[in-house]
Write a protein that binds this DNA or RNA. Structure first.
Length: 494
RNA sequence: CGGGAUGUAGCGCAGUCCGGUUAGCGCGCCACGUUCGGGACGUGGAGGUCGAAGGUUCGAAUCCUUUCAUCCCGACCA
């Protein structure tokens, strides 16, 4: 499997192909027969579940609760917020009928023309509209606020071009939708949640991200302000990995959600929404993997340790497995997840390659020589380094190793990311860096959408964000020569 | 939606230009044996509506028409 992978592509030649093969061969996902959708296989889903659980816990810690809203949204809801419909109209799946019938002219079935819906239903591309239509009934007074709700769901966006995990027609995500009494509270919420995302990326995915504000041009449809976390992939392209939006009173006004304030006056509710999706799986894969396959951070690996016996004959296999079961018990007692692969139909070397491909963080090998010496061979997936350690205290060794791996993967990603942030001042330099190096580019910008769009047309690079930690810096726009007050973060992106 | 490519066994492919017995190869799978510290080997075996529909022909994986799907590159987007 991994051999095929290596022979087929190297990252330098065709990163897209490499990524795609890796996703398929590692058993994470595959394209479905339905255009642009994907099948997430059990191993891929196990990683998503890990992400889900960690995020869900973080949402609950920050005071949110889960709820669920309908998949179908009446078409008319979309026309309420002008920018919102503008942003999503081109990629909506629409339900027009509710019944099939046998084809009168022969085989198969056709849509029953008599079963046309009075009003079409839109398969949610995001749930702001149906949720705000519901919130209208839930909110009368400031005492009903804030509402801090999250939904785990699937959404559909009929994209022209799809890529496994990164952009599929249907994807899984969570979307938070909150309602607040004041503008300040809503902004604070949006800010809080983008920080939750950044923390999740760092602590769980071992992925450094740059937090910042989107430009007006790149903002979410219907938002007043969009915050983003931007990650860098190994091919030098950026990936928008999560967003949090301050929606102002736009949706409250569109759906007429007013509340009686402390002063007795009616006012519109302030809103936020925020989400991350299965795209994070793509980020995880593209950020850390190597030519041997996936590299999973231990905190997200469905199984952290795999144990593989070396043996001749059944009797020896039994002895190795018996020893491994003892070790496994010790590891489990430390909260470490373990798998013993005692399959007799494939050789050990095959297993080594297979678990490397799947990104198991730690491999423990025990053979007759080890058993005699009271040792085991331990390999860490991130560096592929092997070490022979005593079975005595192996549980502590592995527990520490898993932490080291998590930390090391993160540090490596930070080092790479930092090496791929370039400051440029001229457009020539900007183009050169884009073509020869890639990565993030910090460059002065005159602050106009016009210039931003022009740069995109000329270079395919977009402003990923205006980083939160940017400092005021007087300069001139690299394209127009007009005054610039700060540098912004450019990159080509997925 | 434009450009390019590809659909033949679970996976990867050859055969298609130039139609001709029973459609082939590698991997995987099943059985037995030998192996086993980095992707083993031998022998035997199973597995196919050649993406689909229609047409041409004595005869179609191969030629023609239509259609569906997938991948890559663009435009669009999380």
């Amino acid at each position: 499997m991994a051999k095929e992978l290596k022979e087929l592509t190297s990252r330098a030649e065709n990163y897209s192909q490499w990524y795609n093969d890796l996703v398929v061969k590692a058993g994470l996902a595959e394209s479905s027969a339905v255009r642009g959708c994907m099948v997430i296989k059990p191993y891929g889903y196990a990683i998503w579940e890990k992400m889900h659980d960690a995020l869900d816990a973080m949402f609950k810690e920050t005071g949110h609760v889960n709820a669920y809203f309908p998949l179908f949204i009446p078409k008319s809801f979309f026309s309420r917020e002008a920018d919102h419909v503008e942003g999503f109209a081109k990629e909506c799946a629409v339900v027009t009928h509710y019944r099939l019938m046998n084809n009168p002219s022969g085989e198969g079935v056709v849509v029953d023309p008599d079963a046309k819906l009075e009003e079409e239903l839109i398969v949610r591309p995001t749930s702001e509209t149906i949720i705000w239509n519901t919130y209208k009934n839930w909110i009368q007074s400031y005492r009903d606020l804030p509402i801090l709700i999250n939904q785990w769901a699937n959404v559909v966006r009929w994209e022209m071009r799809t890529r496994l995990f990164l952009r599929t027609a249907e994807f899984l995500w969570q979307e938070g939708h909150t309602a607040h009494e004041t503008k300040e509270q809503a902004i604070e919420e949006a800010d809080k949640m983008i920080n939750v995302y950044a923390r999740f990326a760092k602590d769980w995915m071992a992925l450094p991200v740059i937090m910042g504000r989107k430009t007006a041009n790149e903002r979410f449809a219907g938002a007043e302000d969009t915050y983003t976390i931007e990650a860098l992939m190994q091919d030098g392209k950026a990936l928008q990995s999560g967003t949090s939006h301050f929606l102002g009173q736009n949706f409250a006004k569109a759906f007429d959600v007013q509340f009686a304030g402390r002063d007795g006056k009616l006012d519109y509710v302030w809103a936020t929404s925020w989400g991350v999706s299965t795209r994070l799986m793509g980020a995880l894969i593209m950020a850390h993997s190597d030519d041997n396959g996936l590299v999973l951070p231990p905190r997200l690996a469905p199984t952290q340790v795999v144990m593989i016996p070396i043996y001749k004959g059944e009797e020896e296999l039994r002895r190795m497995v018996a020893e491994m079961e003892k070790v496994a018990e010790k590891l489990k007692a430390k909260g470490i997840t373990v798998k013993i692969d005692d399959r007799d139909n494939v050789r050990s070397g095959f297993k080594f390659a297979e678990y490397e491909l799947k990104g198991f963080p730690v491999r423990i090998v025990i053979g007759p020589r080890d058993l005699a010496a009271g040792t085991a061979e331990i390999m860490r997936r991130d560096t592929l380094e092997k070490e022979t350690v005593s079975l005595e205290g192996i549980d502590e060794y592995v527990a520490q190793l898993l932490e080291d791996i998590q930390e090391n993967i993160y540090r490596k990603a930070v080092t790479f990311r930092d090496s791929m942030i370039t400051k440029v001042d001229t457009f020539e330099e900007f183009n050169r860096v884009l073509d020869e190096k890639g990565g993030f580019i910090l460059a002065p910008w005159d602050g106009t959408t016009e210039t931003e769009v022009k740069i995109k047309e000329l270079t395919k690079a977009t402003i990923r964000c205006i980083p939160f930690d940017t400092v005021d810096e007087e300069g001139v726009d690299m394209l127009t020569g007009k005054p610039s007050h700060r540098r912004v973060l450019f990159a080509r992106s997925y």
